[in-house]
Computed example of a mutant assay.
Amino acid sequence: MLFTHHPRYADLTPAQYAEGLAWLRRMGMVTVTGRPVVEIGESELMETGPAGTVPRVRWSRAAEEAREAIGAAGEQALLRLLRQGGVPHVRHVAAESDAYGYDIEAARSISERAHLEVKSTTDPTRLVIHLTRHEYEIMTADAEWWLAAVLVGGDGNALNVATVDRGWLGSAVPGDRAEHGRWESARLEVPAHAITPGLAMETWRVLPDLLLPSRPVWALQLSPLESV
């Protein structure tokens, strides 16, 4: 009755919905009782089955809420560092709207301005980010857009802050393969060669490196002076 009369489900017939559920079960993505397979934790890992089968993408509402909390903690940690470091202009635009395509405005002068998209993680072994199409398009149109990666500690403070290379981001996102299809979000694992410690713009730094936390994470290596 629901599939037949509810307008939200009027796009497919009951038989098509039934076949879709049967396919999910055959692929091992849904149990015989109709529940999703195992829920995911923070690792965002995918389990791959035998060749030719669909990977089991694990998801749960709790994991999604935890991810959002980590993202918010990273933004707040970077805001604190910028304000404590004496940056004259700091504005948390993400608290106003998602339309900006970045999270924080930071400026030392009229000629030294940065629009920082913040990607946060609690994993020190690798840097995995999710970039939206909107963020990518803002990056390509805005020379002041930069991606700041923040490693968040258990107390909510930043353990490491780094900058991801814009050129690498542009080369790593997928391409639109058809006129009527386009990617909207991409999951990217950032290699060490595309990560620069600190908040490094092309010709200036938002904060001196000495004012930012730095750890040998994400395969980055500290300089001999920093490791003393």
Rank of each mutant, 00 (worst) to 15 (best):
L116D: 00
W204T: 00
Y9H: 13
M29L: 15
G153P: 05
D123E: 13
L225I: 09
R25S: 03
L210D: 14
A51I: 08
T13P: 01
L147V: 04
A22Q: 14
I195F: 05
E117D: 15
L211V: 02
D176W: 08
Y100V: 00
R56W: 02
P213T: 07
A178E: 14
P213E: 08
R83N: 08
A77V: 05
I40P: 00
I195G: 01
V37T: 12
P36V: 08
H89F: 15
A186S: 14
M29E: 08
Y102V: 02
V164G: 01
A106S: 08
W59D: 03
V57N: 08
L188Q: 05
P36L: 12
R182C: 10
W168Y: 15
A106K: 00
I138Y: 01
E226P: 00
A194T: 04
L79E: 03
S214F: 10
H6M: 09
N160S: 14
H193T: 06
P216L: 12
S227M: 12
V152W: 02
V128I: 11
E105Q: 09
H5L: 14
G170K: 15
G175D: 12
P197E: 03
L147D: 01
G181L: 14
T33V: 04
E65A: 13
V93Y: 06
T140H: 06
V150E: 04
A77C: 10
P88K: 06
P216G: 09
P14D: 10
P191T: 03
T125K: 12
L82N: 02
L24G: 02
A186N: 05
R35Q: 14
R8S: 14
H89A: 09
T132Y: 11
G175C: 09
A77W: 04
R35S: 12
D103W: 07
A114E: 03
R67F: 09
P224V: 06
T53G: 03
V173H: 06
E105Y: 13
L127T: 00
E96L: 15
Y102K: 01
A162N: 04
I138P: 00
L211P: 00
K119C: 06
T13F: 06
V206S: 02
A200D: 12
G170Y: 03
W218T: 00
E39H: 11
M46P: 00
L21D: 07
